[in-house]
């Protein structure tokens, strides 16, 4: 397994259905002529507590694939945006009950047409802009009455 394949398969510790590659957290994997691997990641939110776990999981994945000589760099620019979540990642989020984000547009993009992850109805309302993790908001479906998480466009 190449270093890139090993790291790309690491799952997000809080959204365990998607990988850090699909989320856009993984920015680069480089291997120099001595076999030293440099992984570059960027956090979703500045205070995201999952970053330490992600760094540890990347290290474990590389060691398991036989690439013990590695380092993990964290960069902040360009700033992460939900626009970097892949199409496949969006589908997986939706299937796991987290409504995927719309286009980020501005600093606080109004989420248009968030569909209920239970019944698919577009008749939904936001209960709170802040959810169980920094990247999610809490929504409710007016059709089936169930609450659900939606990833904030960011």
């Amino acid at each position: 397994m190449t270093p890139r394949e090993a790291v790309a398969a690491v799952v997000d510790p809080e959204l365990r259905v998607v990988t850090i590659d699909e989320l856009g957290i993984l920015r680069d994997v480089e291997t120099d002529e001595h076999g030293h691997v440099t992984v570059t990641i960027t956090p979703t939110y500045t205070g995201c507590p999952a970053m330490d776990v992600i760094r540890a999981d990347i290290g474990a994945a590389l060691r398991a694939a036989g690439h013990g000589d590695h380092e993990v760099r964290t960069i902040f620019a360009p700033a992460w945006t939900t626009d970097w979540i892949s199409a496949g990642g969006r589908d997986k989020l939706a299937a796991a009950g987290v409504a995927p984000p719309g286009p980020s547009g501005g600093p606080v993009a109004l989420s248009i047409g968030v569909r209920c992850t239970h019944c698919g109805s577009p008749d939904t309302e936001q209960l709170s802009r802040f959810g169980s993790t920094a990247c999610k908001a809490l929504w409710r479906c007016r059709a089936c009455g169930e609450p659900f998480d939606a990833m904030k466009a960011y």
């Binding site: 500045t46 959810g131 809490l138």
Partner: peptide, 20 residues
């Protein structure tokens, strides 16, 4: 309860910026 979550989220954002 939603406000507890919101304030904790905002605190975490501020802490993230503070650390950097």
């Amino acid at each position: 309860m939603e406000e507890d979550v919101a304030l904790a989220n905002i605190a975490l954002d501020q802490l993230g910026a503070a650390r950097l």
